[in-house]
């Protein structure tokens, strides 16, 4: 019997672990991406990226023109599934370099967040490791300065990836704390906790609307996203307002703007 099965389907061996091959292949792709893209890039002008971003597509070309009329530069992030977190982290900390008051507010939230996550059941031992590194990076923008050191930190795997891990944990924590609210926005028959362990906490899992809503709410940071999709002739901009529904709703001026092209986030700098 068994040998018959093998003859008819010679390519599949049920006792072999194919996951490892898949993982190995995935690692190769990741290595290639890591070799060609920095985690957070230097500043680019739109003229420098127009070919790459529009690829002979008239609609995208038109939308780049639209961006050009409102934004001056763009910073690329590595397409490794962590781009939203890395773009958010870098863009936000960059604004704190020149905003001491906001820094103080954020520092307190960040400092307190560790105990909140521990109380949600995250293991203290490992959480501390990530939190310590996260705070080390945050402290880099305590005093006004240039972005050079920050850019270097965000391209140092040890710091940058740990920073991303911690942002993911903040998103997971916020979703779990408000599980009764978010459970309706999760597809598949999954609990919020299951969703977090499948779609939020593992590195490289891409971000959706729900992740962005959570992070902006967890940190109380309003942001704007310019959507460069195929509809219309201008980018659709959308503000994620964490204060929505509260008395402060009107004050929500986006702190920074990200550019979304299907599957990827970069950072935009206004004129």
């Amino acid at each position: 019997m068994e040998s018959n099965i093998e003859e008819t389907t010679p390519s599949f061996d049920p006792s072999k672990n194919y996951d490892e091959d898949t993982l190995a292949q995935q690692r190769e792709i990741e290595k290639e991406i890591a070799a060609t893209q920095s985690m957070v890039s230097q500043l680019y002008t739109f003229d420098e990226i127009v070919e790459e971003y529009s690829q002979e597509d008239a609609i995208y070309r038109q939308k780049i023109e639209d961006l050009k009329s409102r934004f001056k530069n763009l910073r690329k992030t590595r397409g490794d599934g962590n781009c939203f977190y890395r773009a958010f982290g870098f863009a936000y900390l960059e604004t704190l370099l020149s905003n001491g008051k906001e820094y103080k507010r954020f520092f307190d939230i960040a400092q307190k967040s560790k105990d909140e996550l521990v109380s949600l059941g995250f293991p203290q031992f490992t959480l501390e490791d990530f939190h310590d590194t996260f705070m080390d990076v945050v402290k880099m923008v305590e005093k006004p300065g240039t972005t050079d050191a920050l850019l270097e930190a965000f391209n140092d795997g040890g710091l940058s990836d740990y920073f991303v891990v911690y942002l993911r944990l903040l998103v997971s924590g916020h979703l779990q704390q408000n599980a009764d609210l978010y459970v309706y926005f999760i597809d598949g028959e999954r609990t919020v906790k299951e969703f977090c362990s499948q779609e939020v906490e593992p590195m490289g899992k891409e971000s959706d609307h729900i992740h962005i809503v959570s992070l902006t709410k967890a940190l109380q940071v309003p942001i704007c996203v310019e959507y460069m999709d195929r509809e219309g002739d201008k980018c659709n901009s959308f503000t994620f307002n964490p204060f929505e529904g509260s008395a402060d709703a009107a004050d929500a001026t986006p702190v920074f703007t990200l550019l979304y092209r299907p599957g990827h986030y970069d950072i935009l700098y206004p004129l």
Binding site: N17, F130, V165, S197, E201, P202
Partner: peptide
């Protein structure tokens, strides 16, 4: 598996960096 490797979600797509 026959080679000793393990099919366990937390070692694959549900891995969290908080595991030690």
């Amino acid at each position: 598996y026959a080679d000793g490797s393990i099919c366990l979600d937390i070692l694959q797509n549900r891995w969290s960096p908080t595991y030690d």
